[in-house]
Simulated scan of single mutants.
Amino acid sequence: MRTGETTAGGRQVPAERRHALVSLARSLLVAGGIVVGYFVLPMTRLDGDSLLRLLAGLALIAALLAWQIRQITRSAYPRLRAVETLSVTLSLFFAVFATAYHVMSVDDPASFTEPLTRLDAAYFTVTVFATVGFGDIAATTETARAVTTTQMLGDLVLVGLVAHAVVEAVRTGMERQERRT
């Protein structure tokens, strides 16, 4: 078993465990930063550029995901890298749609069955993703329904294609490791 650095107590920490802890910490920091950014950054105006920003956010997520999948295949710890990839991708995906819902609600409170706070918008995003559909909040305008439909389709892509791509990247990374040893 490989060992890592010596701790303050003088004992060796296995490299795999150290990498797992660093990966977990990095995932939590990035996801936490995205959540904090969602709740504190100013976003209250819907304008002509809002749709473009939503599309740009989705394109950024797709580009980041493609880069992350490539990194999984090259990583010494592909499973850990896959967990990081999913945590960042899902956090960004949720933040992009929660932001869109919140801004639409601020601009036109009739977009949903009730005006959405940031927390309400995040809640709605998660209920749509989880396909729970409690019915307490629903999109009522065409624009809100179009964005919600876009999220639903994106959810299917995330659950199906992205999960498959991440699993394949882990498999490729593991095979690459086995060839090295």
Rank of each mutant, 00 (worst) to 15 (best):
R2Y: 00
R2W: 01
G4A: 06
T6P: 03
T7M: 07
Q12G: 12
Q12V: 10
Q12E: 11
P14C: 00
L21A: 13
V22H: 15
L24T: 14
L24E: 09
L29S: 13
L29Y: 10
L29V: 11
A31K: 02
G33Q: 00
G37D: 01
Y38H: 00
Y38I: 00
F39Y: 02
P42R: 05
T44Y: 14
T44I: 15
R45M: 11
R45I: 12
L46I: 11
G48S: 04
D49Y: 11
S50Y: 00
L51C: 08
L52G: 10
A59S: 09
L60N: 09
I61G: 05
A62N: 05
A66R: 09
W67R: 12
Q68D: 11
Q68G: 10
Q71F: 11
R74D: 07
R74P: 08
S75Q: 02
A76T: 04
P78I: 05
R79E: 09
L80D: 06
L80N: 06
L80Y: 07
R81N: 02
L86Y: 15
L86P: 15
S87C: 09
S87W: 02
V88Q: 09
T89S: 10
L90H: 06
L92C: 14
A98D: 01
Y101C: 03
M104S: 05
M104W: 01
S105T: 09
P109R: 10
A110I: 15
F112R: 00
F112A: 06
F112K: 01
T113C: 10
P115T: 11
P115D: 02
T117L: 10
T117Y: 07
R118F: 07
D120V: 12
T125F: 02
T131F: 14
V132G: 06
G133Q: 09
F134P: 14
D136E: 12
I137E: 03
I137M: 02
A138T: 14
T140E: 08
T140Q: 07
T141E: 07
T143I: 10
A144K: 00
A144N: 03
R145E: 14
V147P: 03
Q151L: 10
Q151A: 09
M152T: 11
M152I: 14
G154L: 03
D155E: 14
D155V: 15
L156C: 12
L156K: 05
V157I: 06
L158E: 05
V159C: 13
L161V: 12
L161M: 15
L161N: 10
V162P: 02
A163E: 08
V170K: 03
R171S: 14
R171A: 08
T172W: 10
G173F: 01
G173I: 00
M174E: 13
M174A: 13
E175L: 15
R179H: 13
